[in-house]
Simulated scan of single mutants.
Amino acid sequence: MRNVQIPYDLFVALVEYHLGYDDEYEDEIRQGLEQKLDALMRHELYAKYKTAPSVEEREQARQEYLDRRGVFPDFRW
């Protein structure tokens, strides 16, 4: 099982939301978890780009990574 680190503020919002102390954190939690998921996906694509067995798979992972990072096609090599 892998561990995932999250910002302290997101952790506190999750705890308070799930323990029923405060329901105002729903949007903040959703945004924080989406950001974390995007970061995890970018990391997985970068790792695949560096370790893929074939050139085609590496290039596909590189293009997906650059798309997720928001790098314009004009700035790519």
Rank of each mutant, 00 (worst) to 15 (best):
R2Q: 10
R2Y: 09
R2H: 09
R2S: 13
N3L: 10
V4I: 12
V4K: 01
Q5W: 06
Q5V: 07
I6P: 01
I6C: 02
P7H: 07
Y8V: 09
L10I: 03
F11L: 06
F11H: 08
V12R: 14
V12G: 02
V12S: 07
A13N: 07
A13I: 03
L14F: 08
V15L: 05
V15S: 05
V15Y: 05
V15F: 05
E16R: 04
Y17H: 13
H18D: 01
L19Q: 04
L19N: 02
G20Q: 08
Y21H: 05
D22M: 06
D22T: 07
D22S: 06
D23C: 00
D23W: 02
D23G: 02
D23Y: 02
D23H: 04
E24Y: 00
E24D: 00
E24K: 01
Y25S: 09
Y25T: 06
Y25G: 05
Y25L: 04
E26A: 11
E26L: 12
E28V: 05
I29A: 12
I29D: 11
R30G: 04
Q31D: 15
Q31H: 12
G32R: 05
G32H: 02
G32W: 01
L33E: 06
E34H: 07
Q35E: 06
K36L: 10
K36E: 08
K36Q: 06
K36W: 02
L37F: 12
D38Q: 14
D38A: 14
D38N: 15
L40A: 11
L40D: 10
M41A: 10
R42T: 04
R42G: 02
H43A: 02
E44A: 13
E44H: 09
E44Y: 11
A47E: 15
A47C: 15
A47Y: 14
A47I: 15
K48T: 13
K48Q: 11
Y49H: 11
Y49N: 07
K50Q: 11
K50T: 12
T51E: 15
A52C: 10
A52P: 03
P53A: 11
P53L: 12
V55Y: 08
E56S: 01
E57Y: 02
E57D: 10
R58M: 03
R58I: 01
E59A: 10
Q60W: 04
A61Y: 04
R62H: 03
R62C: 02
E64V: 00
Y65D: 01
Y65H: 08
Y65L: 13
L66S: 04
L66G: 02
D67R: 00
D67K: 00
D67M: 01
R68I: 03
R69C: 11
G70E: 15
V71T: 13
V71S: 09
F72V: 11
P73F: 08
D74Y: 15
D74T: 13
F75K: 15
F75Q: 15
F75H: 15
R76C: 14
R76H: 14
W77Q: 14
